[in-house]
C-alpha cells in the first residue's frame, strides 16, 4: 500500500517557463461549463459519445473473437480427433487404493524431437540449421537468443512446440514426478524448459548434457541418477540409444520435426494414466519387443 506523506505543491507556469499551458477541453470545444457540476454535468454529450464508442469497441472485440472461434471450429472439422483431448476419469475405490499402494512414479521426458523441435540461425553461413524439412510458412512458438560462447554474438533459436504439449504436461504433472533429461546444453535447454513450464512447476528436476553418459558413438541417459528404484521410473524418448541401458523402462515415441497433425502426445495420455497404477512399470514396459541385438 502506498501512503502519500505530503502533497506536491502545484507549480505555476512562472516556475516552469518551458511548459506550455494546455487549455481545458471545454474551452477548446467551446462548451459552456457550469460551476455546479451536480446540476449540469460537464460535457455530457462528449462523455456519452465516448461511452458509446467504448461499448461498440468492446462489442466489436466480442464479435471478432466469436468469428475467430467459429473459424477455429470449422477448421478443426477437417482434422479428425482434435476436439477430444482427454477427460480424466474419476477414480473408483479400488483404483484409489491401488494408487496408494503403487506410489508416485517418476516420468523422465526428453526435450528435443520429443516435446519440441528447434532450429538455429548459424551466424557464419546465415542459414537456419534444422529447418530444412519444414515448410516456410511454419511459425515458431518461441524465438530465443542464447549466448552459447562468451564474447560471441548470441545464436537465435526457433522453437516449435509439439502439438498438445501443454495439455500433455498439465496431465502428467498431476500424475507423475516429471523430470526433464536432455542431451542438449544447459544454456539452451533451461530457457526452453522454463518456457514450457510457464510457471506451473511441472518439472521437478532437470538433467542436461553434462549428466548424460557419452561414448564414442552415442549418448545415453542414466536413469539410476534420476531414481534408484527402477520399478518407479521410466523415460519417454525419441532416441533408442538414450535408453539402451534401460530397455524395460522406456516408452518410444516418434521424432517430432514439424507436423501440425501430430497426435503422439495425445495417444500417450490414456496409457500413462493407467501406468501410474502399476507397482512396477516394467511389468508393462518390459513387454516391449526389442530389436534383435546386432
Amino acid at each position: 500500500m502506498v501512503v502519500q506523506l505530503f502533497e506536491q505543491p502545484k507549480s505555476s507556469s512562472v516556475d516552469q517557463p518551458n511548459v506550455s499551458k494546455v487549455a481545458p477541453i471545454e474551452e477548446t470545444l467551446g462548451i459552456e461549463t457550469s460551476t455546479d457540476s451536480l446540476l449540469v454535468p460537464k460535457i455530457g454529450w462528449l462523455t456519452c459519445f465516448s461511452r458509446i464508442y467504448d461499448w461498440t469497441d468492446e462489442l466489436g472485440q466480442y464479435v471478432t473473437r466469436f468469428i475467430a472461434y467459429l473459424a477455429f471450429k470449422i477448421r478443426h472439422l477437417f482434422y479428425p480427433n482434435q476436439l477430444i483431448i482427454y477427460d480424466e476419469a474419476a477414480l473408483s475405490p479400488a483404483s484409489k487404493a491401488q494408487l496408494q499402494v503403487a506410489g508416485r512414479k517418476t516420468l523422465v521426458l526428453d526435450l528435443d524431437e520429443t516435446l519440441v523441435h528447434s532450429c538455429y540461425f548459424d551466424p557464419e553461413t546465415n542459414n537456419l540449421i534444422g529447418c530444412n524439412l519444414m515448410p516456410e510458412t511454419a511459425i515458431p512458438d518461441y524465438v530465443i537468443n542464447i549466448p552459447i560462447v562468451a564474447d560471441i554474438q548470441p545464436i537465435e533459436f526457433q522453437i516449435f512446440k509439439r502439438p498438445y504439449v501443454d495439455e500433455f504436461l498439465s496431465f502428467v504433472g498431476r500424475w507423475y514426478e516429471v523430470v526433464i533429461f536432455t542431451a542438449s546444453m544447459e544454456a539452451y535447454a533451461s530457457i526452453v524448459v522454463d518456457k514450457l513450464d510457464d510457471g506451473r512447476g511441472i518439472f521437478q528436476r532437470r538433467f542436461y548434457r553434462q549428466h548424460c553418459v557419452s561414448t564414442s558413438s552415442f549418448v545415453s541417459k542414466n536413469l539410476f541418477g534420476v531414481n534408484k528404484d527402477l520399478a518407479s521410473v521410466f523415460i519417454i524418448d525419441n532416441s533408442p540409444s538414450a535408453y539402451r541401458d534401460f530397455p524395460e523402462n522406456a516408452i518410444p515415441i516418434k521424432s517430432y520435426i514439424y507436423d501440425l497433425n501430430d497426435q503422439e502426445l495425445l495417444n500417450l495420455l490414456p496409457f500413462l494414466d493407467a501406468l501410474r497404477f502399476t507397482k512396477d512399470v516394467r511389468s508393462i514396459l518390459g513387454r516391449r519387443q526389442l530389436p534383435a541385438p546386432s
Partner: peptide, 11 residues
C-alpha cells in the same frame, strides 16, 4: 499390475 492397468483403462 496388468489387472490394475486394465482396470484403469476400462474406467
Amino acid at each position: 499390475d496388468l489387472k490394475a492397468f486394465e482396470r484403469r483403462l476400462t474406467e
